[in-house]
Amino acid sequence: MALSRQLEQALTRARDLQPVPAGTTASEVVTTTPRARLHHYGNGDGPPLLIIYSLVNRAYILDINAKRSVIATLVAAGLDVYLLDWLYPDSTWRFDTLDDYLGEDIAEATDYLTRDGQPPHVLGVCQGGVLALSFAAAFPEAVRTVTTLVTPVDFHTSDDQLARLARRMDLASLVAATGNVPAATLNALFTSLKPFQLYGQRYLGLADIANDDQALTEFLKLERWMYDSPDQPGAALLQFAREFYQRNRLLTAEIELAGRIIDLAAIRAPVFNAYARDDHLVPAAAAAALGPALAHDDYKAIELPGGHLGMFISSAAHREIYPTLAGWLHER
């Protein structure tokens, strides 16, 4: 088939296949916090695990493919999975800070999941991992274990391009100019890290899967997720970028959130840390810095080959990370 016809067929078929679903695993909303809904997956058996996702994208990347769903895998492994699903911020959130996210949303969710005095396991993803670690440092008694996936801890590693680019930016002016920072602004920054791949090559590949509905559907689901980005509450984004990206204060224990100094050495819970070797958003070294920052030895780290998204959707991750994580959680 000629190339033009193949691409035309792919585009036509892709249009027919839209809209594509966001997630695959059934859930129910069991409670709400000021900025999130708490989703419950599974039948309620097993120890509760609270997933805290990044504020930057939507959490359904963890459940985007039925065969490689992080959430479904953890449910199948016998964990009682809950997801703190951040809402799309409106303009009245522009003054909300990380203190609010920790002291209100995460605190309320962990309170809700504390049973007979036993707090939940907490799993943070990317920026959500920073929130999870900060919460565990601020309220050590409120978490049973902490798991971090592709989570930056040292924001000043030499290969951290995002941090390098953010360091000279006048973020206070940006937030003053925009209020909540539009998703498109952050998307432009992220895509500018791989512009030729994301703008130049990605869509041409559609011609290769013109006759494969399943592959087209998976492409469209990922496409939907990539640009389904909430605006960022101005004050919280400024705090995160300035304190962590520009000043590296998660590592230096020089930041106070929710009325507590955030010192990773204060974390008492066991820690499981998984990161990706070729991650261009969170370099492996930035994530691996967590181990030495802890004051205890109940720490397990796994480095996975591949990039940032591979941690959620690659077969290697589903073969190596999640079965290991489930076993580790059950032991604790």
Partner: peptide, 26 residues
């Protein structure tokens, strides 16, 4: 691009365009 993005020159250029855009908005 990956080689160039690591340079101070590029970071300065990107920051300058971002910062001046913010100032223009303000």
């Amino acid at each position: 691009y990956e080689r160039h993005i690591s340079s101070d020159q590029y970071a300065a250029a990107l920051s300058a365009v971002t910062n001046s855009w913010s100032e223009l908005q303000l």
